[in-house]
Design a protein around this nucleic acid. Structure first.
Lengths: 210, 210, 210, 210
DNA sequence: GATGAATGAGGCTTCATTCAT
DNA sequence: TATGAATGAAGCCTCATTCAT
């Protein structure tokens, strides 16, 4: 009569504790002891559920990415079938700060980017999440192009999507480190102007979606 | 007769050593010992020239920013007085990879962004560098607007400049962690399309500057 | 109706698992987890059957000694009643390497000798096994002396037996750590020469038993 | 004006501290903290002078072997040119317990033998020391054979030397773990009887050297 | 009996910093 | 200025042992 395994929840609990600490102290600053304390468990338990600290990071990145995907799914679903609306929703999901803004996730995401420089596993996860975003945009662009809502050459879709993702990522960094450089409320609009320009949205529609 | 002080050079030497190590191991991974080894000096000497490891980081960020400013000065000077050419040169300076690309500086810059989340001094230096970039763009935009090369409302100049800087910063992150997402050669062109759009450059001039 | 106790087998199973691990990682290196894995049981079960890790070691030493005794019984029985043959069989049982050689037991035995330095219980078991070997030799020597096959003074029997046991033990160490120092096949013969000399076996019989 | 390096002495100091602790707690039981305490230095200093705990062990084994070689040199020098006397001195050096007996070194030697099972570096050092002993015996045997003091075939010299070394090593183990099995004072005599037998010393000389 | 989670101590190692020379 | 030894505090990880089920 063994006790039912709770490993899955524990792992998530620990990974979330890492995110919490990492947001304010960085990955290196998130000691196993601090993580355990944040998760309200004994330090030794951490390494019962994870091989190494790095594994926790990988799990945490996966959580972060999943959370983000989920949120995006929700917000894009509300955009219905209109590619322009989807594009706008995509941008707003990333840049509209409001009730659902999550500064912790933002800080973590930047930390993860830093770790990705040195750890292939992290890089893969990080790049994977970015790629996911790019592919969503590509899908939106293709549908929009087919529906003649966008008018950009097939060959430029990838570049346009990457540019949009880069802009969003860059805004993250600015928002987290030099917020005063972004005129309040301007981020989403500027990104939208830029994206709709790249996607070849007609000026009329463009303005309508502001 | 005291020997002439060489503190200034030593400090630069040490700060550059930090950059070298930090590029591949991160800030935490750059131990004083490793820095000293990279600078070809004894470990004890490091703390003779710097109060603490953090001071080295601050000096290194300053170096990084100065190097970047210098490079930008050089490249913008070549653009003459034409605001559109300056804008293009500004973008190319950041995204054109070629002989002068510096992956080490790139990695360091991302690391510094991460540290900026936690250290106010680093944040100031990092944000200061970003602000410098924004202001250059603002200056270009103003001159361009006055010369009717750009047609963007005064009130939107700051937002546009911030958006461009965000895009460049975002491309840095992508280039360092998920280069395959950027179609080769597309970064500068996409950023240019975006920037010239935001700045209200006439389509004709836009194409001419590709 | 309680299920029938299987404690005895479980204990043996666990102790044998310790021997297996200890042979290649030493006693300290044999973690409870590793032992449990080698025994194909859950880690928690180990401490149900044993008070402590040390108890497992004691049980393992007992097993090792018993195995050795059993093997010796079998081999000496084949030597019939002839003291010289018994002596030779005794030596061969320890030094003839062949199908029945057991490098795992050899390594364990040396480990146990090391632990005996620090743990009185282990020392007793280890010394007990050595004493058993000495006593067997003493018995053989006494019978041989009575039968005039050996010609050594009563007072020297103990010393001779101890010397033989020391030699065997020493060969174990050499075999396990510096096998190349032992000319192949020479161990049993040299030990025999030495033992028969100490026991005062007539040169003729000596040669006959080679 | 750097401080003169004291690394060599520090290393020896630390290695000797390890021997001291290892004698009573074993290698695993000799924690870095305990070693540092025994050496009267701060814990951190240990790893300034040694890469790893294992390196300390290797240094300690080297010290142990060197000490032993030195002692042997001294004792053998006193035996003059007489091979039989040298053989006797060799045995006495190892088995005569008296003022110069060193139970700490004895315990360490057995520990080292245990570690040799698992660590190739240790094995090499341990086997090297044993080989040194064998070679000394071989040299004595050769000179004795040439001088017709010993009468053993060339081909058996190696085996005889190995047998003697095995016996000495075995006596070490017995002395450290089951001393009561060795009739007091019998070890050197029994080993001598055995060695002189193997070396083919004439019975007359044999008795004379007791 | 059996399972696997939980605990907390302790080990090795790294490191920023200080200090004697 | 410069050197390299010295210090002590963490940090990651392992582990024997206990416990709830």
């Amino acid at each position: 009569m063994p006790r039912p395994s709770n490993t899955a929840e524990r792992r998530a609990q620990i990974a979330r504790a890492l995110l919490k600490i990492m947001a304010e102290r960085g990955y290196e600053g998130a000691s196993i002891g601090a993580i355990a304390a944040a998760a309200h468990i004994a330090p030794g338990l951490v390494h019962y559920h994870f091989e190494s600290k790095r594994e926790i990071l990988l799990a945490a990145v996966a959580l972060l990415a999943q959370d983000h995907r989920d949120r995006l799914d929700r917000l894009l679903a509300a955009a219905g079938d209109d590619p322009a609306a989807e594009l706008r929703a995509f941008i707003d999901a990333h840049l509209r700060v409001g009730a659902q803004a999550d500064p912790e996730a933002l800080a973590c995401w930047i930390c993860v980017g830093g770790e990705a420089l040195r750890d292939d596993g992290v890089r893969e996860a990080f790049a994977g999440a970015l790629e996911g975003a790019v592919q969503r945009l590509v899908a939106i662009a293709r549908r929009g192009a087919r529906a003649r809502v966008f008018s950009l050459p097939r060959a430029e879709i990838d570049a346009a999507a990457a540019a949009v993702v880069a802009t969003l990522q860059g805004y993250f960094v600015l928002a987290a480190t030099a917020r005063h450089l972004i005129p309040p409320g301007s981020a989403a609009d500027a990104a939208w102007a830029m994206a709709s320009g790249l996607f070849g949205l007609s000026p009329a529609t463009r303005r309508a979606s502001r």
